[in-house]
Design a protein around this nucleic acid. Sequence first.
DNA 1: ATTACTGTATTAGCTACTTAATACAGTATA
DNA 2: TATACTGTATTAAGTAGCTAATACAGTAAT
Lengths: 134, 134
Amino acid sequence: MLLEIDHHSGVPIYRQVIEQIRQQIMAGQLSEGEQLMSVRELAAQLRVNPMTISKAYALLEVEGLVERRRGVGLFAARLRKNKKAHTRARLLEEVLRKAAVTAVQLGIPEEKAREMLVRLYRKYDSKTRSHSNE
Amino acid sequence: MLLEIDHHSGVPIYRQVIEQIRQQIMAGQLSEGEQLMSVRELAAQLRVNPMTISKAYALLEVEGLVERRRGVGLFAARLRKNKKAHTRARLLEEVLRKAAVTAVQLGIPEEKAREMLVRLYRKYDSKTRSHSNE
DNA sequence: ATTACTGTATTAGCTACTTAATACAGTATA
DNA sequence: TATACTGTATTAAGTAGCTAATACAGTAAT
């Protein structure tokens, strides 16, 4: 498991941890049931206080993405395929909802909003593919 | 000009002011060149410190949506139609970009993201229409 | 110049959030 | 029980952001 923290981005450390672990789980890079690095281990790697990691883990558990077992460790939750797809859809819906509200408020036609999304999707999709070959 | 502030939403007052005025300008409810309420007037109406309003106005000017003239007042900017459309597109693109990145990261197909956007758009579009008849 | 409006720079206090230090608690193994 | 790992509750310090009080500055009309 590789995480990178940008201490100068302004984004809180615990949120960076959450986002990166969430994506690794959602993208299948972390197998279900697999044990994650311990609080202290990850804290040492990132040169950060253990409580900061513990907080990130706690919020990931609320999301249902990991299971914490005191004295044992932290494990990627075993999600049903349905659950996994559902979680993905929920995460996407959050951001798409904001976009939809904005479009409606500004009086931008559905078609134009749709085209803009597709253009942006393809832009980032191609970026991702090129990165995966590095 | 009618604004409503929710002091308990957690959203800073100045941002609530910005968002509501921005929307009123973008939706054409505020004519171009029209004078807006003065800093002190709006501050009194919202029972807020004048500097809070001034800050909101300052940021709206950076966006190019209003013009401040010290000693005179604040006016809705005279935007070319192109400029107006451009501003709208920029505002929408900001939120759509986040959605596109999320969709790509989660491996959600373009088609599904597009369908979800359309569904949400229609949902909020119909809500807006029904409200305008109240 | 005076008056009465406009907006604003500075400063300070408050609050919420983030992070960290410490001490504590659960589990597994010998 | 002893040890060595796990995670965690409490507390406090630091920081950033928001709001407000005050005094200041520009404009217009008298």
